[in-house]
Write a protein that binds this DNA or RNA. Structure first.
Lengths: 384, 384
DNA sequence: ATAAATCATGAAAACCTTTACATCATCGGA
DNA sequence: TCCGATGATGTAAAGGTTTTCATGATTTAT
């Protein structure tokens, strides 16, 4: 059904002659550039108003269509003409108005980044990778800090729905609230989840292989001779924690080590949870020789607790983290950990999103990068 | 002078009748919405094409001008009409196309952030403040990572010159290369420098009062009884270092303490420079009782060096930093330092920029916030 | 009762591009 | 010599807003 407006008779206005509007348009060029531009070429950039494609066209003596082509499809214009246009562009200091272009092309060359906490150093390093790849391909980055607030998530989606952004990078681990209700995926904007996958939805994902990384970490401890290895950060409803714990279990299982359930300790990934976990070990009186922590923050908590109890690390206890956050190397003892390739994660995620955006089929909708074992001083052979 | 195009006779084309173009426009609404929208209201959002203001107008039975007014100046339309429009907006799922709006309004409600290193945690915390204030005022943030590369700086300026961003927040401490040559400030886009001022140019600035902060820090050490206080991070051509050293000198001068020039040590603010500085002290054999460091990274270097030499901190040496970076509390001993109000800096900078953007006169073109003394465990009375 | 001010609304311009369609010139081949 | 293909370029139509000016109707002031 088409909605048709029916005007009442009294409302059917007749257009009025307003010749000055036309006149204004004709005078525009002069109003803009003022007299003397031709002579004072250098002065062009001094004008307050920006040059438009029309100014360039007039100066080069061609139509605006030709100017546009000279810029966007240079092969389609004759050499001599192109030179004139380029010259005119230089003289006027013309820059394409991105708004007009976006309006016409229906794409903005902008990507919206939705992150729960922009201040998180883990995030900001990935951001650098995202930025590298985006700017290489001529895309700009728009950042949205949601603080896990659904209303802020919805709010930021306006950039998508208002055409201000073409695609979406998700750090939040869940669909933004405004999109969550959509029954099918068909209407979702192009997006890629990074760092944390979106569960239950088939959203393209770029992240680190947490299972494999944790397995490598645990195997390193085993290779050093540890048998009683605690896992700090049990949280089965958090995907990252769950996968890392799986990796830990796989490694121990592979080495034929029975896991003492008292060595699996809850933790939400904060430094404080690590500290509490270590204390709990002493209460339980079921001490391990090594702590494999779900992340570096947790590991730092463990180390702080052990230091406070005056243990000599790593002689009496080994500790491993995961992430390689920036101060992992500064704590005493410096932390042996699994390094996340954050820069590459960012690049890979942006690459995947831009592929999607171009309408091409990506090689794979899930990219898992390997974490790298970083050897420092928080791990040694047990029982010295 | 107006550039006038003179067409040769052969080029004066006559427009051709192409009635289908008109037809296409007339059919647009139906093509877009398909049949049955009226009946299937909930289905409106399911259409691929987004609703435009015209669709809303048709559905509400008013002109697009009235729809625009109902949205932007609600008081200017009659109550009954406004309700109809709002209803139609809800039914179509209409969102204003930001590109069209920006094109027309000549402003994008976007702010470009130019930072040398987006991954720097110091930066990212300020960013959170910027974001808070910006999103409160309906502005979006566009980030540009320049890595101090002039060509990247110039490149990012395209967002300004193409109207994709209305204003600029500068973290770089200098004008972006593309703007640097401009002889007068008149042509600079609205911008605010944050964290580091732009020297030699009258650019509005928001930062911390480095002089005052360093003075408070030094006075704290003096109040603990220290007299031989080293300053680590002498670098007179860096504004921040210079000011903090001035504050240190002012405090010592105020307390009547002669400064031993051997206690002033070069440093570029890196952890490594702190470590080297501490080593140098031992070489010079002119040991202080306390180290006032130009920033926390330097202080960490000093602490690492002293720990490595098996000194007992803070009993044998006190160390103070500046910044309160996130791991200042995790190193042993935890670092007494001056906390930068980063969140507030971000907010204040954005507030200042938006004031400028609104064409209003700001209260002050320079905002200096006070750093806060954070007492931890790296400072004690000397000579125990 | 009439003139003047106010109110609600519409038509069309303006913002600045890109691009579909059209035109003319030129060149190569028959 | 003529015809078709190709190449260079122009015209005008989108693209979706906001806003100026105009119009009648209604209210207020005289």
């Amino acid at each position: 059904m088409i909605y048709v407006k029916v005007y009442s008779e009294r409302n059917r206005f007749m257009p009025v002659e307003r010749p000055w509007l036309k006149l204004r348009r004709l005078l525009k060029a002069e109003l803009r550039w003022g007299p003397g531009l031709g002579a004072e070429v250098e002065g062009a950039v001094l004008q307050q108003k920006l040059a438009t494609i029309e100014d360039v066209a007039a100066m080069a003596g061609v139509s605006i269509a030709t100017v546009s082509r000279a810029i966007n499809e240079p092969t389609k214009v004759a050499d001599a003409t192109r030179r004139r246009v380029i010259d005119a562009i230089a003289r006027t200091g013309y820059t394409t108005n991105a708004m007009a272009r976006s309006l016409r092309m229906r794409r903005s060359n902008m990507i919206l980044i939705l992150a729960p906490d922009v201040g998180d150093p883990n995030f900001s390093n990935i951001l650098v990778g995202l930025e590298t790849e985006a700017s290489k391909r001529g895309y700009g980055l728009l950042i949205g800090n949601t603080q896990n607030d659904p209303s802020r998530e919805t709010d930021y989606l306006r950039f998508i729905s208002s055409n201000q952004a073409d695609g979406l990078i998700l750090f939040t681990g869940h669909l933004p609230f405004g999109l969550a209700q959509s029954p099918t995926e068909a209407r979702l904007p192009p997006m890629v989840a990074v760092n944390e996958p979106v569960l239950g939805q088939d959203i393209p994902f770029v992240g680190v292989d947490n299972f494999e990384g944790a397995r490598v970490a645990a195997e390193h401890l085993i290779s050093q001779g540890h048998r009683r290895i605690a896992f700090v950060g049990h949280a089965p409803n958090r995907e990252i924690n769950r996968l890392r714990e799986e990796g830990y279990r796989a490694a121990l299982g592979g080495a034929g080590i029975q896991i003492d359930p008292r060595l699996i300790i809850d933790g939400d990934g904060t430094t404080e949870s690590g500290r509490a976990a270590a204390e709990l070990m002493f209460v339980r009186d079921a001490l391990p020789t090594a702590f494999l922590c779900v992340n570096d923050a947790t590991a730092m908590g463990v180390i702080i607790a052990l230091n406070a109890r005056r243990y000599d690390l790593p002689r009496q206890f080994s500790v491993m983290g995961f992430d390689d956050i920036s101060f992992a190397s500064f704590i005493t003892p410096s932390l042996t950990t699994m390094k996340q390739p954050r820069h590459r994660m960012g690049e890979a995620a942006m690459e995947l999103l831009l592929t999607l955006l171009a309408g091409e089929k990506p090689k794979s909708r899930e990219v898992l990068l390997r974490a790298e074992l970083i050897l420092r001083n928080s791990v040694s052979r047990p029982g010295n």
